[in-house]
Amino acid sequence: MWLPPALMITAVAGAVLAGFTCSVMGVFVVRMNLSSIGFAMSHAAFAGAAFGIMIGSDPLPMALLASFLVALVIGPVSHIAGLRPEIVLGFLFSLLIALGFLFLHMVPGEATSGAALRILWGSIFGVSRYEVVALGALSAVVVVFVALFNKEIAAMMFHRKLAEASGIDTQAFLTAILFMTGFSVALSLKLVGGLLVYALMINPTSTVYQFTFDFRKMVIGSPIIGMTTCLAGFWASLLWDLPVGTAIVLVSAIVLAGAIVASPKRRRG
């Protein structure tokens, strides 16, 4: 498949930056036991984007809004109702996907309009130049955040209550992390698609986790894997004319499977 250079550059930059932010946030989300919140947020972003398309507005702000809303609600609700994380996860996943499909179904005009398909499957045409700029800005914020607060982040990944007891305002850091996660998910949505975006967060960190006992290497290695698999998936999608999100997720899943098989960590004493 041949693409004009400008579109090509936008698409490559989008893939690399989405791979970067999602995989860095993935390290924090997984190690701080925020997986169920991150999972719900990414599907909320899908439902929100679908809602945006239905009412004929830009899907991005709606995706952001929906994912923040879910982050805001899910903690207290599951706490008050005493629900186990798996229940919340299964319940919210199906609810949010159902809502997303409902909104897409109600899109006026052609039901299979380009925009609707884009947020479902992902598309290299989906990422606009301003979204690439936004992803770039977000990546810069993430880098600065990690550089300034790595000692707090590490302590929280180790044990949240112990971190709180040692004088870290863990609630403030959690809020910041969830905000950045929401932005990462919403901005990556149109590239890989609403059903697959969570894989961008979870696969790279799980891959690196197979190889290191050093959290610094995780924070550095995870985005390297994330960016590489995004690029490789992007390339594969051009080569075989596959939907880009599908290709990226398949590549990153294969890499993760290989890492689990090859992991030296479980063997070493």
């Binding site: 190690r31 300034l148 607060f149 000692k151 707090e152 590490a154 302590a155 990944m157 180790f158 044990h159 209550k161 112990l162 971190a163 007891a165 040692s166 004088g167 870290i168 986790y209 290191t212 006992f213 050093d214 959290f215 290497k217 995780m218 960590k265 479980r266």
Partner: peptide, 28 residues
């Protein structure tokens, strides 16, 4: 803290854990 079990594969070396005490005490 009492009874704290760490995931055996957790990515922290012993010396990192000791340094974590400073994360709180020094402040942001």
């Amino acid at each position: 803290i009492q009874n704290f079990e760490l995931d055996p594969l957790a990515p922290f070396l012993a010396r990192d854990v000791v340094m974590m005490g400073f994360a709180g005490s020094l402040g942001p």
